[in-house]
């Protein structure tokens, strides 16, 4: 059965020359959906992506990545919603295209962030007057 997993990868300078995404596609038969990628002036790299494929293949791919110097974070690390800074006004809600930012508790109008739904479009960042949404990119 095919599953989708969201990953946030950090590549130190030593690994930025390696064709890692190519390997994920070719050797592990994964479908890749990249949300954000960045190479800094210090030549480190950040990559935020979805991988879709057989669960066993994803496991093998993660095992391969762990043999490299790559830091693997499961889930959404690219876009950060600061629960403490959020004032639950909801200004972000009409700007979030996927419903990742939405009222989780309708009765108390309390906002919630569903990481899996976030595509890191960054529309929430300028929309939030409280600076609750930030990105590592």
């Amino acid at each position: 059965m095919s599953v989708t997993k969201k990953l946030y990868l950090y590549f130190p300078k030593s690994e930025t020359e390696k064709p890692i995404v190519y390997k994920l596609v070719k050797d592990f038969d994964l479908v890749i959906n990249i949300f954000r990628a960045k190479v800094t002036p210090e030549e480190e790299g950040y990559l935020s992506l979805d991988v879709t494929g057989e669960a066993a293949n994803i496991e093998r791919a993660l095992a391969y990545l762990s043999t490299l110097e790559v830091n693997i974070h499961a889930g959404n690390k690219g876009l950060h919603w600061d629960k403490e800074r959020c004032a639950h006004c909801g200004a972000c809600v009409v700007h979030c295209p996927t419903g990742a930012l939405a009222f989780a508790d309708q009765a108390r109008r309390q906002l919630g962030f569903t990481e899996d739904l976030c595509v890191e479009c960054h529309a929430c960042i300028p929309a939030c007057p409280f600076g609750a949404c930030t990105s590592s990119f």
Binding site: A87, H88, C89, G90, C92, V93, V94, H95, R108, R109
Partner: peptide
Amino acid sequence: VPVTSMSSYNKAL
């Protein structure tokens, strides 16, 4: 039209 708010009902409550 999608509607949003600048006022926080949650904090007011």
